[in-house]
């Protein structure tokens, strides 16, 4: 049993690398989509809303296959792009909700000081939006980590795949699956704990989300 642990460990690394890559990709794209949807002109706004709807409505597996078979990418890159667009769509909707919950007066006050719209978004709206979205982001992080397992379907050798390989040799599915489950719990739980520290660090008195 011991001699197979390095294999599992390799899988964990791939899972974490994959999860982080597409989570960050999704974070960046999600921000852009949200801002485009709220502040863009009619065309941009509609496009962003459409993007968010499509990628929230499609099964992750379908998006994965479209990238993998459609663009001839490496499994890892296809997984990052496909799962990244999915989480981007979800994250954009948290961000959009957060922006819309920020009082309109904040934008007006920034403009009255002579800030351009872009600067007001970056300096005044986004810092508030990101704080308001943190609890949702931490939830989305857990989903992201769990979604990495879907990359298995296009041949990324992440932890679940490594596990399956070991099972074919050792014929002890339950032991291996339980170890894998515990590893997932540690990664998701550990990450949400770290994010809760971040939330505490950036907390502003009186500016909390009533949840």
């Amino acid at each position: 049993m011991i001699e197979y642990l390095p294999g599992l460990f390799r899988g964990v690394i791939v899972t974490i690398k994959l999860g982080f890559s597409f989570f960050i990709f999704g974070f960046v794209v999600g921000n852009i989509i949200a801002i485009g949807q709220v502040y863009g002109n009619k065309f941009i706004s509609l496009f962003c809303a459409g993007f968010a709807w499509v990628f929230r409505s499609l099964p992750a597996l379908v998006i994965l296959y479209l990238w993998y078979f459609g663009f001839n990418l490496s499994p890892f890159l296809a997984a990052v792009l496909a799962l990244g667009l999915r989480t981007a769509a979800y994250q954009s909707q948290f961000f959009r909700g957060a922006i819309q919950s920020i009082a309109r007066g904040q934008m007006t006050a920034a403009r009255s000081l002579g800030m351009s719209k872009l600067r007001a978004v970056v300096k005044i709206i986004m810092p508030q939006m990101l704080r308001l979205s943190l609890p949702y982001i931490s939830n989305e992080y857990a989903i992201t980590i769990k979604d990495t397992s879907l990359a298995f379907a296009i041949g990324v050798v992440e932890i679940l795949k490594e596990g399956r390989l070991i099972i074919t040799v050792l014929h002890n599915p339950m032991d291996i699956f339980m170890i894998i489950a515990v590893i997932y719990l540690i990664i998701t739980r550990g990450g949400t704990y770290l994010l809760s520290l971040l939330e505490k660090h950036y907390r502003i008195p009186g500016f909390e989300i009533s949840n």
């Binding site: 920020i102 009082a103 007066g105 904040q106 007006t108 006050a109 920034a110 403009r111 009255s112 000081l113 002579g114 800030m115 351009s116 005044i124 810092p127 508030q128 704080r131 502003i204 500016f207």
Partner: peptide
């Protein structure tokens, strides 16, 4: 934006930046 810099505005609802 340049014009607005020269005209201060104080709001009924204060509109201080929350963060």
């Amino acid at each position: 934006n340049k014009i607005r810099q020269k005209k201060g505005f104080v709001f009924q609802q204060f509109n201080l930046f929350n963060h």
